[in-house]
């Protein structure tokens, strides 16, 4: 929301993503810092940033599907897996350049997501949310049971490094720039989608699908589109993941990973792209802390062994989801907006 006294005088200014000079400056500073990050911080932190950017692409996709269009999606990790496997197979068998494999990975995931979105033509409400769990199971089944020279079965697939004009994207720094470029494109695209005709249709369907239908929105197509876009983002994120880890296996894309993505958008705030980014940042930091602290605790509580990291992650993230739903259901972004506006209008309450 703009401060009082600032009125858009044309639709063009009203639709702008970057609305004030200060926002422009902040954005430029952020992009500049990100571009310089590999030279400013240690390799470990660059690796964490890489992971955050990949999660950001996927979480933004989920945000569009769940936060904007209101479709509960517990299959985001499966969609990510479809993308990762597509990229891995294309890269290792046909040797296509990543410039092609990443969009193709997105498209194949989008197709898979669209299949589940299509059921929205008939299925509504919880039934629809639960069919996305079926996506998760069918993905696992397909990977593990199709002939192992197709998708590697339980052995997974090793992915060759991304290459462009003889330049190999190996190591944290090179991958950082590749991930940053893709993430920047995807997030800019997300801002475009949510303020477009489609994005407004998503919000209308989320708020009341019967009313949206009466106003002339094709509700089923809108829901299917939401799944398509969400899955496309997941597929692109999956492809980046495949190039970063250089190995894909079915264990990387479980229902738990889907729930982690849900946690990210809940913490950040539903219905806000920036919120998804904030959520990714917070959840990834929490995961990083647990992964670092966990093994130390594991030494003192020996009977749990290596499972303490997984268990601790689940307890804390599950607790975070529940706490946020109870105490701050609109997420950190909402709290930030309240703080901002109360700072601006101080000393008046509203």
């Amino acid at each position: 929301m703009d401060p009082s006294g600032i009125f858009p005088t044309s639709y063009r200014t009203d639709r702008r993503v970057v609305r004030t000079r200060w926002q422009m400056a902040a954005l430029a500073l952020f992009v500049g810092l990100m571009l310089a990050a590999p030279y400013l911080v240690s390799g470990r932190i660059v690796a964490i940033l890489n992971m955050m950017m990949i999660s950001a692409v996927i979480a933004v996709g989920l945000q569009i599907c769940t936060g904007y269009a209101g479709q509960i999606n517990l299959g985001q990790a499966a969609f990510m897996g479809v993308g990762a496997y597509t990229a891995a197979i294309l890269a290792s068998k046909t040797g296509l350049t990543f410039l092609l494999t990443i969009p193709l990975a997105g498209l194949s995931a989008a197709l898979f997501g669209f299949l589940f979105g299509l059921t929205a033509a008939r299925i509504k409400g919880f039934y629809l949310a639960l069919t996305t769990i079926a996506a998760q199971f069918i993905f696992h089944f397909a990977v593990l049971n199709l002939p192992s020279n197709w998708m590697g079965g339980s052995n997974g697939i090793t992915v060759p490094p991304a290459e462009l004009f003889g330049l190999r994207f190996v190591g944290e720094t090179a991958q950082f720039y590749m991930n940053f470029a893709v993430t920047a494109i995807m997030i800019a695209g997300a801002f475009g989608i949510v303020r477009s005709r489609f994005g407004r249709a998503f919000v209308a369907v989320r708020d009341d699908d019967v009313a949206a239908g009466i106003m002339g929105i094709n509700v089923a197509a809108t829901k299917a589109n939401a799944f398509l876009i969400g899955a496309f983002y997941a597929g692109v994120g999956g492809a980046l993941w495949a190039y970063m880890i250089r190995f894909v296996g079915v264990d990387q894309f479980t229902l738990f990973h889907s729930i982690f993505f849900v946690a990210m958008i809940i913490v950040g705030g539903m219905g806000s792209i920036v919120g998804a980014l904030v959520g990714v940042f917070v959840i990834r930091i929490i995961q990083e802390i647990i992964a670092t602290v966990g093994p130390n605790i594991a030494d003192s509580v020996s009977f749990l062994g290596g499972d303490i990291v997984f268990a601790g992650m689940n307890v804390i993230l599950g607790g975070v989801i529940a706490l946020f739903m109870i105490l701050e259901p609109k997420g950190l972004m909402h709290r930030w907006n309240i703080m901002k506006s109360s700072y601006r209008i101080w000393p008046f309450p509203y």
Binding site: I72, L74, I259, V262, A311, G312, M313, L317, G318, I321
Partner: peptide, 12 residues
């Protein structure tokens, strides 16, 4: 959504 959180919380 809380029950989704409970799913991983209770498992952990």
């Amino acid at each position: 959504m809380v029950t989704v959180g409970l799913l991983i919380l209770l498992r952990g």
